[in-house]
Amino acid sequence: MVELSHDSRPIIGRGPPLTAYFLTLAALSVGLMVADQRYQQIDRIRESLSRVIYPMQRAVDFPFRATDWVTGSFADRSRLRQENLALTTRLRLANLQLQRFAVLEEENRRLREMRANSAGIAEKVLVASILNVDLDPFRHRVLLDKGAADGVFKDQAVLDGDGIFGQVSKVNASTAEVILISDAEHAIPVQSNRSGVRTIAVGTGDQNKLSLPFVTVESDLQEGDLLLSTGMGGVFPPGYPVAQVSKVKRAGSTFALVEAKPTAKLDQAREVLLVWFKPPAEPAPVAGDKPPTPSSTPVEDSAAVAPPAQAGGE
């Protein structure tokens, strides 16, 4: 039971009038919320607060990392050998493909040079690990252990070994928050590898499902099609796998019901890549609504704004 003890507020000298204090702080919170929605400067407050919070996040992450380390260092020999063998095989295969890739890349570069179009290929990557902290069960956000100190910027593309993972939504001093492509507030422009159909893949809140709401019944999409990033909007580098079409239902009269499964391992990845790349110079007359952005900060969520129907002449 709660004790009815020594610390009840005395009748005389109650300290500051409670209601006035309450109203002041309430007004302050509302002001903060409005400012957070409107102005960038508030990020500085967030950043300084996040310095206080950082040890807590590390503390939560530590046991997981420690068990990882312990199981890693005491792994038995046969398992390590097996793993080693599997990795060697994969490396050999990858090297083989790489040889072909080098030739293709050279060819691609020459072709692009002919078109005077800079290739939107990753120029620099940084490996970041995902901290084991839970941000919000209803949103797909993760926290990386790299932040402004490492040069991470807002809207930076995040990839894992298998495809596009998400984009940086908030940058703190030594951590960064990433919104996954499966978050219900995220959208990414994609293109079918097989047919070249362009559309937008929207997150559903389910980590194994993206929805493609703007695909018409007539458009050429099939189950199994690989969807690649187009690079429109300047957030994501073009040509990286995003998802594989898992379901196409042409029931309605205008829009087909299309779902796709992200290729990146959104729920398993422990380490991801932060990517710096030069956005492709957009062919100015076609791309329309906004001038080709140079390397500076891209517009927020511009991925979602990119018009789907500009099937252009690629």
Binding site: G31, L32, M33, D36, S50, I53, D136, R141
Partner: peptide, 17 residues
């Protein structure tokens, strides 16, 4: 509450209120 906002990456002031 404010610390919780920063921790969870919510709008600053939401949990504080």
């Amino acid at each position: 509450g404010l610390f919780l906002d920063v921790l969870r990456g919510m709008v600053l002031g939401q949990h504080a209120l």
